[in-house]
Amino acid sequence: MTRIAAIISALALLTAGAAQADNKRTNANPIPLDRPAASTPAPRQAQSVRGLDAVMGKDMATLVRMFGQPRLDVVEVQGRKLQFSGRACILDAYLYPEGRNGQEIVIHVDARRSDGAEVDRAQCISALSAR
Rank of each mutant, 00 (worst) to 15 (best):
V109Y: 02
A6F: 07
N29E: 15
D73P: 09
L72M: 14
Q20S: 13
I8F: 05
A117T: 14
R71S: 08
D120K: 03
G79E: 04
A37E: 12
P32K: 07
S129K: 08
F67T: 03
D22V: 15
E104W: 13
M66W: 06
R113K: 01
G102D: 07
G86D: 03
T15G: 14
D22H: 12
A38L: 09
P41A: 04
I31P: 12
D92T: 00
L14M: 14
C124N: 02
S9A: 06
T40C: 04
E76A: 15
L95Y: 02
P36C: 05
P70C: 08
D120Q: 00
L63R: 06
I107H: 09
D34I: 08
P70I: 04
G57I: 03
R25K: 13
R100F: 08
R3K: 10
V64H: 04
C124Y: 01
S9R: 02
I125V: 15
S114C: 13
V75S: 03
S129P: 04
N27A: 14
R80V: 09
N27P: 02
I105F: 05
G116M: 07
A61K: 12
I8G: 05
S39A: 15
R35T: 05
E76F: 14
G86R: 01
R71F: 06
R35D: 06
R44W: 13
T62I: 13
Q78W: 13
C89E: 04
V55R: 04
L11D: 12
Q78D: 15
T26L: 12
R113V: 00
M66G: 04
A5C: 12
V106G: 01
A46N: 03
A127T: 01
E104P: 15
L63Y: 07
L63P: 03
S114Y: 14
I107D: 11
P32H: 08
A42T: 03
A21P: 08
A37S: 10
S9G: 11
D115M: 10
A54E: 08
S48Q: 11
I7N: 01
G116V: 15
T40D: 02
E98S: 11
R121E: 03
Q45T: 06
G51T: 05
I31V: 10
G68D: 08
N101A: 13
R50G: 01
I31K: 02
S9P: 06
H108E: 11
R44P: 03
H108K: 12
R25Q: 09
A61H: 13
L13W: 11
A61F: 14
A28S: 02
V109C: 00
H108T: 08
D22Y: 11
G51I: 09
D22C: 14
I105K: 02
A10F: 15
L82Y: 10
Q45S: 00
N23Q: 12
I7D: 00
A54I: 06
G68N: 14
